[in-house]
Design a protein around this nucleic acid. Sequence first.
DNA 1: CAGTATCCTAAGCGATACTG
DNA 2: CAGTATCGCTTAGGATACTG
Lengths: 108, 108
Amino acid sequence: MEKDIAKVSPRCPIRTTLELVGGKWKLLIIIQLTHEPKRLSKLKRDIPDISEKMLIQELKNLVDSELVFRKNYGEVPPRVEYELTKKGKLALPLIEHMKDFAEQYTAL
Amino acid sequence: MEKDIAKVSPRCPIRTTLELVGGKWKLLIIIQLTHEPKRLSKLKRDIPDISEKMLIQELKNLVDSELVFRKNYGEVPPRVEYELTKKGKLALPLIEHMKDFAEQYTAL
DNA sequence: CAGTATCCTAAGCGATACTG
DNA sequence: CAGTATCGCTTAGGATACTG
């Protein structure tokens, strides 16, 4: 009995993945957190095209899905850092695969 | 000089990939074409949840991006088959990686 | 059979002003 | 600094009727 790629239920892993990292910004945010945790203001500077609303909204989504951890230092003025969780780090190889796909596609 | 995952230009491979296979249906259609070419009516039956409009629209997108080839037999009544191109087959490993990601995520 | 055409809703995205 | 709140535009997605 072999694993068949064509067997997909309506609630399938593909859909799960698209929900977790789909959309315009989630993967770009994850990429920015690859090497070290960053504060909101730093993320804003590093992804200049994103609107403040989308950045905060997508960070919230990533925190809710446990891909990103929100570390609140509870200081005044506010100091919050965002970092990848273990689950979040699972996305890094996927990102590489997606880059590979794009490059192979372009090369063909 | 090492390859740095954090270096992403606005027009980056990630975005390319999301455009090619993002959205609710493109990957499901590609999956359906994994093993053999299929006619529109067959795809409709195999992906019962998709609306006719979306199926045709996404097939058109996939044909435009050269992931899928539209083979028109020019018969009456009409007979058209859709099959993966070489570029389209590049998506199959990516799909596996996306499944892997979802499964690892769920397991954690 | 393989599509078009039309109309509609929901979601994604964005700009900007404001707050503790 | 790290957010909220509001408004509006644009795109994605869908239901249904029709056509060669």
